[in-house]
Design a protein around this nucleic acid. Sequence first.
DNA 1: TGTATTCAATACATACCTGTATCGTAAGGT
DNA 2: ACCTTACGATACAGGTATGTATTGAATACA
Lengths: 207, 207
Amino acid sequence: MTTPATRSRENTRARLLDAAAQVFAEVGLDGASVEAVCDRAGFTRGAFYSNFESKDELFLVLAGSVGEQRVNAVRDRVDEIAAEGGLSAGCDPVELVQRIMDAGGDDRLGVMLMSEIRIRALRDHQFGAAYLVQEREMVSSIAVIITDIVSVSSLELKVPAEEAARMLMIIWEGMTVRGAMAGQDSDQLRHSSGEELGRLVQLLLAE
Amino acid sequence: MTTPATRSRENTRARLLDAAAQVFAEVGLDGASVEAVCDRAGFTRGAFYSNFESKDELFLVLAGSVGEQRVNAVRDRVDEIAAEGGLSAGCDPVELVQRIMDAGGDDRLGVMLMSEIRIRALRDHQFGAAYLVQEREMVSSIAVIITDIVSVSSLELKVPAEEAARMLMIIWEGMTVRGAMAGQDSDQLRHSSGEELGRLVQLLLAE
DNA sequence: TGTATTCAATACATACCTGTATCGTAAGGT
DNA sequence: ACCTTACGATACAGGTATGTATTGAATACA
């Protein structure tokens, strides 16, 4: 079924999705005209409507894939760290958490796109439910590694692992958003949010 | 200069701002037509354009007043608690923080409006700078009371007060947003976010 | 009471965006 | 080599939003 035609079609879809991610991040879903997305992708509206039903449908697809990518990125990181034995007794919990959190796209556009998705989740009940499900998956993945870290170290968790994970995610989000507002670039974002996260991690753990 | 005419004008402005707050919260700034705002306020577009230059200008005014109200609400609470001697040695830090945080509007629409303001701050540099200034004021106010609490109690703060305040604000925001997504009403929002905040407070303090 | 001014309503011109319907073209199958 | 099909471009119709210009009414003031 992978005829050149379908390959080309998939390519078109991918380019449209890519362009949409940028445009939606910059001006929001409502602010983005279908034509603006097509322009950036190098197509006209004909290509758009032959690949997607509407702007909303494209957004749903995009949001789903972004969320999935984030979840997978976190899971992969977790697995990777676990595989390479990064959870030895002497490991630095602060650094570990940073490595996991870096898995999410934390560039300026990524932050803006996530915010757009978030506000849509806030307005649309059904979409919001799906969003929360995905987020809970991420929380679980993070909770797993937290539990593992704790189990091999001499440290103890002061709150349930899930709760610690939730706090970490929320702080991470809050810091990156504020960093992006202040005009920080990707590296600065990573740095400042990492700093705050480190402090939280230390609070969450006890000898 | 408070002639009946100006009083009526101020009233119109207030009603328009009020309506705009609702509509913007529900469907966002872009999704809200000027007419939709006017309809809700019981006016036509004539009234609108005779009171505001554009939708954007109204949004700026609204965002400014919302932010100011939040900052003042927090400051008032802080002063109020300090005045009534709520900072005695035996006070419950968890409850105190909850009382402060409740000062912000934490109903569903309030959360959505704040999110809309936040995303605008993310897209517009200048607006974002102003937003961050206001937020820092809130952080300072909260930091003050945290410092006071600590000074009269036998407790100790594990991170700088400003940082603790920032974490509290971010967690509060994150929890209320997620609560609103899950369809919680105001009381549930207060309850669940308060719970998480309490745990964070306990982490931030040490004997 | 008459006049002037201010505020809100109405009407209108313009721009834009969406979605559909039609057309041309290039690739795949036989 | 021909035919068919799928994909993307173009053209068009309908709807909606914005902002301005004009009109009407109510209020203050002389």
